[in-house]
Design a protein around this nucleic acid. Sequence first.
RNA 1: GGAGGCGUGGUGUAGCUGGCCUAACACACAUGCCUGUCACGCAUGAGAUCACGGGUUCGAAUCCCGUCGCCUCCGCCA
Length: 585
Amino acid sequence: MGRTDYCGRISPAAVGATVTVAGWVHRRRDHGGLIFIDLRDRTGLVQVVVSPDAAEAFATADAVRPEWVVSATGPVAERPEGMANPDLATGAVEVRATHLTVWSRAETPPVSPADGAAVDERVRLKHRYLDLRRPELLKNFVLRDRVVFAVRRWMHAHEFLDVETPTLGRSTPEGARDFLVPSRLQPGHVYALPQSPQVWKQLLMVGGVDRYYQIVKVFRDEALRSDRQPEFTQIDVETSFLSQSQILDLMEDMVRSVFQEALGVTLPPWPRLTHAEALAQYGTDKPDLRAGPPLVDLTAVGQQVGALELPEAASWVGIVVEDAALSRKQLDALVEQARALGAPGLWWIRRTPEGVRTNAGRALADGGAGRLADAAVLGRDGLLLVMAGPMGVVNRHAGAMRLAVAAQLGRAASGFHFLWVTDFPLFEWSADEDRWTSAHHPFTMPNPSDLVLLATDPGAARSQAYDVVLNGVELASGSLRIYDPDLQAQIFSVLGLTPAETASKFGYLLDAFRFGPPPHGGIAFGLDRLVMLMAGAESLREVIAFPKTHTGSDPLMGSPAPADPGQWAELRLTPWGPDLPQRSS
RNA sequence: GGAGGCGUGGUGUAGCUGGCCUAACACACAUGCCUGUCACGCAUGAGAUCACGGGUUCGAAUCCCGUCGCCUCCGCCA
């Protein structure tokens, strides 16, 4: 074999040298008396020219087809006058092959790495190895490697220890549905794959590790989306003896260093918003800061000018869009979208040289539209969207409309806009289960000043939990943890876990906390999402080498697959159910 | 658990208000010609039981029902 150089790295400096390049035939252009082969490897393309002077190589080049694996040996030459290709990194040079060797042939590929055309997802996944040859896809994995390397470099420099935790663990209540693994040695018992190494990393803190991180696969058996896979990778972090603001500063520094190293992008400091502020200003706990200014609270003026249709509206919210060139048709579409969200409606108010124009009509008192525009400090040619209704719900709807307007305007496209969201509520009420559930997870430390609320008003208690949000996507989530067994028991009790259940399911953790647990806290980043956003990709599938489909299957290996009767027997299990799924292919 | 979209040669699509479809177009593929192309060009050709099953009809890619698969969204995802 004996490759000497990567295709994409042949440069004018190599002119005159004899090289051997190897890879896949990207394209072949046969001129009868002269054959050009674009040869592709991980680094890119280089043009190989084969002339009839090299008779044997020429005969080989004549037979070669796309995606065959070949190597070419010959001198690097500058291309003739006027023949350079400025669109190709190696476009100034070419390899004049004296020898050409075929190492593998290829059938006509169902996914053409040279075309890069949109191909059906199941075809791409079934032949993922062909899809991966596409330079557009491969570059995502180059980036992913750079990100992981930058993370590890930073972690090592800051004395974080990479400690592995088990993949076979124990199912816990709360949170996502677990993937279960039946035990053969202990029939009827199961392991659970981790939703996160949460408890393990807390036990590592009790074990004195002090600073832990792990780039680790985690598993959640929930419905999938373009940004959710059943197994995904976290950058999992835990520290001892640090305050919340120290942890936030550290993690922000880590991400900043990763962006600098992997992407050459310098991030500004991240804004910090409390959960309550995020809801008030953006109507969501994961604001997209690219989508224009915050919402404006118009409740005071709104209640004065009144809405004949909504006399009892407790909350009025405005979305200010400066310089909005939206047509009447687009405005109508926005009103429709608002209705689709379940909002009673949407009023637009526009300042024009001729005065204020609005679709609110007689719903507002005379001059009401103008007063709302004044209150929102609406500039010339500005557009104000107003929504009114019950407290809370209005903000959520307005937050969604804020994004809809940005999408309509084609804004919110570029840049990396991070922020911290802090002070999440400790609990959320689950109507389904008729009980309090943890907003983050049951080990989250309450805000010390809200401890009294645990017994009286759990819904009002804030936690010391925080999220990292990037461009409207939840990228990381973390908290300070409880390390007092009594407090932990109190939280379990609010969650409706009986002492017996607690002892059975979390006894090991409460035990550990009896032996000197340090104050600790941490965070977990979604690595796949991070790389997806850094790569500008639309789906997690673009940054995972062998992803699952929307229904959790892998068309390449054909998983999940039925188990043999013998395998079921060993596990002492029987597939059960009215009708097990039929398979078509 | 729910809603929507899609499934036609290797790939991407058209056809889908039933008969003109013996299924069209582009790319890819095969054969031939061509010594400076780079999405090379030119000519000729092969390749599809229209996802699967059932139904309606004289007649189904087209209409109806079901199944499977893929995508997107809501619920869900501590």
